[in-house]
């Protein structure tokens, strides 16, 4: 097992992991471990490789023709690039929330029921129960319970992102990846999402990617700083912002970079 001897159960482990698009290197020799039920934040300027890092975990990068990886990436002790892995099953365990707009062009109910339906769930009762439970967990149920049939596009940006979270939760994942989920959101909605993430991290392993150092400071228990595909520094949020070890980290957190 990847549990290791220090008593921390490791959910995610990048081991000498490289990823490139054609000749462009997006991630270089990434080594990182993320524990079970940890809320980990990856911050870095645009184009630093955050998105690639996340999209390798659920193999969403498979659709990019020029994408190549080397090294290993373990999820729960299993190499996600093992040829025996069924990516559809993998993706049910590793949910993802995208930047806006992030809803499917259908009703609120069907957005949440989408994953379970594709996994073969037919029972109307089970779907209703799952939808209610997931929306409740995403702190959206009270706002939408009377309008589940309305189109998801009618929701506000903040509500749409909570809907995206509910959609992921409906599959009962281990890991939730969030790629700039609050870009384009107002400050109040952003804080609401961040609170929700802290809450959810008691049950789920969460990896949040953001270009905003303030968000990393607010949310993360542990923060990694990624730049030009290189993981420059990993530290507790407090340390990262008060005592950055690397000058590039300091430049970024003080707003001189990115």
């Amino acid at each position: 097992m990847q549990g290791g001897g220090d008593g921390v159960f490791r959910m995610i482990r990048y081991s000498d992991f490289n990823y490139s698009y054609g000749a462009v290197c997006a991630l270089r020799s990434l080594n990182l471990e993320i524990g079970k039920n940890e809320l980990f934040t990856v911050m870095g300027p645009t184009g630093s490789g955050k998105t690639t890092m996340l999209r390798c975990l659920n193999r969403l990068n498979d659709v990019v023709p020029s994408g190549r990886h080397s090294g290993s990436l373990y999820l729960d002790g299993v190499d996600v690039y093992d040829p025996r892995v069924d990516v559809t099953v993998l993706r049910r365990r590793v949910g993802m929330v995208f930047a806006l707009p992030a809803v499917l062009p259908t009703s609120i109910f069907e957005n949440v029921a989408y994953g379970p339906r594709r996994a073969g769930e037919r029972s109307k009762a089970a779907l209703s129960e799952t939808v209610e439970r997931s929306l409740t967990a995403a702190a959206l149920w009270e706002e939408v319970k009377d309008r589940l049939g309305e189109r998801a596009e009618t929701l506000s940006g903040g509500q749409q992102q909570r809907l995206a979270l509910a959609r992921v939760l409906a599959l009962g994942p281990d890991v939730i990846l969030l790629d700039e989920p609050t870009s384009g959101l107002d400050p109040i909605s952003t804080l609401r999402i961040e609170d929700l993430l802290r809450e959810l991290s008691r049950q789920y392993t969460i990896v949040l990617a953001t270009h905003n150092p303030q968000q990393a400071a607010r949310v993360g228990s542990r923060v990694g700083f990624l730049m030009l595909g290189e993981l420059v520094e990993v530290a507790e949020a407090g340390d990262m912002f008060t005592r950055p070890r690397d000058p590039r980290t300091e430049a970024f957190v003080s707003g001189r970079l990115g």
Binding site: T88, R91, R92, M96, F98, R167
Partner: peptide, 23 residues
């Protein structure tokens, strides 16, 4: 984005076509 959301929720390529892209 629609395709990515669908794939990220564990839908296969064909399911994505039938349930998201074609509608």
């Amino acid at each position: 984005e629609y395709r990515e959301i669908s794939l990220s929720l564990g839908a296969s390529r064909w399911q994505t076509v039938v349930h998201v892209v074609l509608p």
